[in-house]
Nucleic acid binder design. Structure first.
Lengths: 248, 248
DNA sequence: TCAAAAGTGTTCTTGTTACACCCATGC
DNA sequence: GCATGGGTGTAACAAGAACACTTTTGA
C-alpha cells in the first residue's frame, strides 16, 4: 500500500464539508486526433474501471469555475472550452460500490453515511480541447489519464457511458449553432483538418467541395497567406478562426 | 397572522432533511393565450415579489419526478411536458432575504445556518401546458398562482427573470428539433392556432401560406375531416398531432 | 509527366420566400 | 356581392448535393 497516496486520499476525504453535498460535476473532454474523436478517461486505481474526470463544487465557487478547476486538478488541463449540457439525477445515483472498493485498497472503510457514498446529482459538462496542446496528467485516484476513441470505450463506472453518449448528442446538436468545432483544433488549421473534425463529430462523411464553400460562407475564417509544407500535391491554405467576425 | 398557514409552513420547514440539500428546481411554465406566451408565477405572500414555481428534491426521487411533483404541489398542474434546460449555479446564489421576510411575517426566524437560507444550485426546467386545461392553484407560500405575459413580468425573486429568459431561448432553439410547440395547444387545433404559437415563441410574424406547407410537409399532422363552426368565412380544418408519425 | 490533394465552377435539386389566386361563409 | 379568413399554385430566389474542371506540387 502506498502510504503517501493513502494520506493524500484521506486528506481529500476530509474536505467533504467544504463541498456542496450530493452534487457533482462530470466532464466529457473531447479531443480530435487521427480523424477520430477521443475522450479523456481516468483509469481508477485498484479497480478495473475507468471514469470521466469529475469532482465536487466548493461552497464558494460557481459550478462553471468548479468544472474548470476539476479539469485542472484531475487531468492537468487549462483554458478549455466548456459547455454545460445536462443534469443526471436518477433516484439511486451514487452509493458507489466502486468507490468503496478503491478506498478499501488503502484500508479505508467509510461508514455507510459517509459523504462520498451518498446519492449524487451530477451536472454534465463537455469540454473541447486542442489535442496537441494538452498533456493529460492523472490525479491521486487514477493510474493514468488518457485518450480513448469513442468507438472503443473501456468499462466505465456508474452511468458515465451514458453521460458520454448524451454529451456527443449535445455536441452534434450545437455544432452549427455554437461553432464549437474550432475548439478541437490548433489556432491554425487546414480546411481538411476542419472537415475531419466535423466528420468525426457528426459520424458521417461530408462532401469536400461543398464543405469548403459552406465554411467560407460563414465569414468567420481568416485565410492566412502562408501555406503548408507538405507532400506531392498543392499546398493548402491555413485558416484561423476569427472570433471578431463571429459576432456578426 | 394565519395560525393554520403558520403551522403548515413550519411543517414544511421540518421536511428539510428529507430533501437533497442545496439543490432546487425552478420551473418555467409556458402557456399560450390570446396570441401571446405567458408564464405561471406565484405571488409570494407577505412580499411584493413573484416567483417561479420551484421546490426541492426528495432523497428518493429523480429530478424529473421532483419537477413534476413540484408543479403539482405548487401550481396544481398535472401531465405536463417537461424539459430540463440549464443549471443555475452562481457562487452566492441563495441566502434569500425574501424568504427571511416571508417567514418573519409568521414570526418564524430561522437561524443563519437554516437549510432554506443556504446557497442553492437550481436546475431549470421549462414546461409547456395547454392553457385551456390548466387550473392553477397557489400553495401555502403564495397568494395566487397566475399567468403573466412574457412582456410584462412583475418583480421576481432572485435570478428568476434570468431563468425565464434562458428558458425562452432554449425553447426557441429546440422548437423545430423537438416539435415542442404542440404541447401548448389542445388536442385539436387549427393551423392558425399553431402558427400563433410559433409566432409567440419566436417573437416574429410568419408567412401564413408557407407555414402551412412546412407544417404539413413534416408529416406529423393528422387532418380531421371535421371543421370548425366559425364566423363569416371558410371553416378551417382541425388538426391533431400524431405522435406515431413523429417517430419517422 | 503523373498522381494526389486543393481550390473553384457548373448543374441539378431542394427548400424558402413572396405573392397571386380560388374557395367557403355570414353579413 | 363582398369582406374575411382558409387553402393551394407558382415564380423567384437561396441553399445544398453531386460532379467536372483547373491548379499546384514532389516524385
Amino acid at each position: 500500500m502506498d502510504i503517501e497516496l493513502r494520506s493524500q486520499i484521506l486528506g481529500f476525504l476530509d474536505k467533504g464539508p467544504a463541498f456542496l453535498p450530493g452534487l457533482s460535476i462530470d466532464c466529457v473532454v473531447f479531443g480530435y486526433h487521427e480523424g477520430e474523436l477521443r475522450v479523456l478517461l481516468l483509469d481508477i486505481r485498484h479497480t478495473p474501471y475507468f471514469s470521466l474526470p469529475g469532482g465536487f463544487i466548493y461552497q464558494e465557487e460557481s459550478i462553471d469555475e468548479a468544472a474548470l478547476r476539476i479539469l485542472n486538478e484531475r487531468a492537468g488541463l487549462q483554458d478549455v472550452y466548456l459547455e454545460q449540457f445536462r443534469v443526471f439525477g436518477q433516484a439511486g445515483r451514487g452509493n458507489y460500490r466502486i468507490h468503496r472498493e478503491m478506498l478499501a485498497a488503502y484500508g479505508i472503510e467509510p461508514d455507510p453515511g459517509h459523504w462520498l457514498l451518498q446519492r449524487f446529482v451530477s451536472i454534465g459538462y463537455y469540454a473541447l480541447v486542442d489535442y496537441t496542446k494538452v498533456k493529460p496528467s492523472p490525479d491521486i485516484f487514477s493510474v493514468s489519464c488518457d485518450w480513448h476513441p469513442l468507438e472503443e470505450l473501456p468499462e466505465l463506472i456508474l452511468d458515465h457511458r451514458n453521460i458520454i453518449h448524451h454529451a456527443l448528442g449535445s455536441l452534434r446538436l450545437m455544432l452549427d449553432h455554437k461553432l464549437s468545432g474550432f475548439n478541437l483544433l490548433p489556432e491554425t488549421f487546414t480546411m481538411a483538418d476542419l472537415q475531419g473534425v466535423y466528420e468525426a463529430i457528426l459520424g458521417k462523411k461530408l462532401q469536400r467541395t461543398n464543405f469548403q464553400r459552406k465554411m467560407l460562407s460563414l465569414g468567420i475564417l481568416e485565410r492566412l497567406d502562408k501555406k503548408w509544407t507538405g507532400g506531392a500535391h498543392k499546398a493548402p491554405y491555413l485558416y484561423r478562426f476569427d472570433a471578431q467576425k463571429e459576432e456578426e
